[in-house]
Write a protein that binds this DNA or RNA. Structure first.
Length: 586
DNA sequence: GCCGTTTTCGGCCCGACTGTTTTCAGTCG
């Protein structure tokens, strides 16, 4: 084996192959096939090497005989002939042009073949010199749009995907502004935002109104809008000052259901749903369900009606990723997804004893006010100096304060004494066993050395998981969205060990983390793991972040039973006490 | 290139907007 590829790298290779085939004018369906395979490999909850060794590559949707052979070749030899050939035929600098709005494969091919342009710089030069307009289909207006697009890319005014937590306040600002427009009947943010994907490519808004023009006018003149990309009577697009693109569609209220369904996506889900509709004799668009034979339109005012008419159970937005949800809805085996009110407590909470901003009392009152029955206090252990980690002596002092707060808050709510304990570089823990044994629940996490090699990182996690007094592994991959990749580790082995030992894996709800990622969380559930959803709150306001974590769990198809902090306190503590015995068996 | 309660071959979701065009191609989602 030449080297080890990540799923992301392999997905990128197939994405590049799709781009290059497209520039060569290959048939769109073949290009689409490579894109679909790339997308599914990127979203896979499993290491592609494991599937390869099991001979199970074909279980990835969109991977058939030909693409399986190519993955095999790449993993076996470290090279892919098709990829090497395409790279020798097509200048790689052409692929960078895809970032420029309005520059698709046909236009890239045209400037390359007819003008010999291979780089963005040459394209800019030609546009300035007015040479592009000589090409068929190009004109002066397009030329200046391309120039503006190059400028925007250069000044990094075009954002890539942004974390959900960054998109959140922007979306709500726009929703509030549109809500004020007279005549607006219904209003929603759709797209990947509504599906609560961890990162958002653009914002999609849908409005039902009788006066589209007034809505469009308001949308395109919002103060946070930088450029109006297009403006029509039913559809407008703008680029926000942050670089994020936002689209708005206006429709009549009677068609709200089909429209909201369509604009929520995902594209894969929509394609599959439309194929399913055709099998049942309907053509589905954002405007209506149309009976193919009679061409009779059936308007759906709600999404529920769309799914019902197609013989399906209602599919919640978080599941609409084209990953088996339509079959499950057809067979009536969609999970009863966890909801925020199922939760009985928060299992990672900090106070001023370490790096939190509020006292134990303030945090506990806020947790109780939310309707929780318990809260696990998890200040940092001693070695995490930057976070004022506690020595065992300080930990025992802290216990007295916890007891006082518990006495004060009375029955029906309990602060549990825990800690967020460092998993050190050698896999050992930052408190001796007798300290850990005296805590109600122990949360363990890695904050340093995430870049260690795969074997060492994996061994650290396995050591913590097999420790008799570790109950929860916090923010397992350590990723920070848009800033830092998660640790490279053998997740399949880690998830299996967690399942065997009953060690709970955290979904950290902080929108900068969302860790476990949804793909890994879903795999964890398939392997029989139990999870928890925690905010990692450092102030009372941060308890509100819990809904982001619930969304990740829903995207992982989690039911309340799968999430240990929906359980009554007695059951949770009993589960933890069982661990040494489970280790004996494992 | 993928895929199968009409198929192992012949299909493959559906539409808006713009610019360059006199009916449509390209891009985007």
């Amino acid at each position: 084996m030449e080297r080890r590829w990540t799923n992301q790298e392999i997905a990128q290779i197939f994405e590049n192959i799709a781009d290059m085939l497209e520039i060569q004018g290959e048939i769109p369906y073949k290009v689409m096939a490579y894109r679909r395979a790339a997308e599914n490999i990127a979203a896979l909850g499993r290491d592609i090497y494991d599937l390869w060794q099991e001979g199970a590559l074909r279980t990835i949707p969109g991977v058939g005989e030909a693409i399986e052979e190519k993955i095999d070749q790449l993993l076996r030899t470290g090279r892919l002939e098709l990829y090497e050939r395409l790279k020798s035929e097509i200048p790689q600098s052409l692929l960078e042009m895809r970032q420029i709005p309005d520059m698709g494969p046909k236009r890239i091919k045209a400037v390359w073949e007819k003008l010999g342009i291979t780089t963005v710089e040459e394209l800019e030069e030609a546009a300035r010199a007015g040479k592009l307009r000589s090409l068929p289909g190009f004109g002066a207006k397009l030329e200046s749009k391309i120039l503006a697009g190059i400028e925007a890319v250069k000044r990094r005014k075009i954002a890539g995907r942004v974390p959900l937590g960054v998109a959140w306040p922007l979306a709500h600002e726009i929703l509030s502004a549109l809500r004020e427009v007279p005549g607006v009947q219904q209003l929603a943010a759709a797209g990947s935002f509504r599906r609560m994907k961890d990162t958002i490519g653009d914002l999609d808004f849908l409005v039902a109104a009788d006066n589209p023009d007034a809505v469009m006018e308001r949308f395109t003149t919002l103060p946070i809008v930088e450029t109006v990309l297009l403006k029509g009577s039913t559809k407008s697009s703008v680029r926000l000052r942050t670089g994020l693109q936002a689209d708005l569609r206006v429709i009549e209220a009677a068609r709200w259901g089909t429209a909201l369904q369509y604009f929520t996506g995902s594209q894969q889900h929509n394609i599959q749903l439309r194929e399913h509709a055709l099998k049942r004799g309907y053509s589905l668009s954002e405007y209506a369900l149309t009976q193919v034979e009679t061409e009779k339109e059936i308007l759906c005012a709600t999404e529920e009606e769309v799914y019902t008419r197609l013989g399906l159970a209602y599919i919640p937005p978080e599941l609409r990723e084209g990953r088996g949800e339509i079959e499950a809805a057809l067979e009536g085996r969609l999970p009863r997804l966890i909801e925020i009110h199922d939760l009985q407590g928060d299992l990672q909470v900090h106070s001023t004893w370490s790096d939190g901003q509020a006292s134990i009392r303030e945090m506990a009152r806020a947790a109780k006010a939310r309707g929780y029955r318990y809260m696990l206090l998890t200040d940092h252990s001693q070695s995490l100096g930057v976070a004022k980690g506690l020595t065992p002596e300080r930990l025992w002092e802290q216990r007295r304060e916890i007891e006082a707060v518990n006495a004060e808050l009375g029955d029906g709510f309990r602060v549990l004494h825990g800690a967020e304990v460092e998993i050190r570089a050698d896999g050992s823990l930052d408190y001796p066993d007798e300290v850990l044994a005296a805590l109600d629940l122990v949360v363990a996490s890695v904050h340093t050395g995430l870049r260690q090699d795969r074997e060492r990182v994996t061994a650290r996690f396995l050591a913590a998981i097999r420790h008799p007094y570790v109950h929860i592994i916090a923010h397992p991959t350590g990723r920070l969205l848009g800033e830092r990749e998660g640790a490279d580790a053998d997740w399949e082995a880690i998830l299996r060990a967690a399942a065997e030992t009953g060690t709970l894996l955290e979904i950290n709800a902080n929108p900068a983390r969302l860790d476990l990622p949804d793909g890994l969380a879903r795999r964890a559930l398939e392997l029989g793991c139990k999870l928890v959803i925690s905010t990692d709150a450092h102030s009372p306001g941060e308890f509100d972040l819990i809904h982001f974590g619930v969304a990740v769990a829903r995207r992982a198809w989690a039911t309340p039973e799968d999430i240990a902090n929906t359980w009554p306190l007695e059951r949770l503590l009993a589960w933890a006490k069982e661990k040494p015995r489970r280790l004996g068996r494992a």
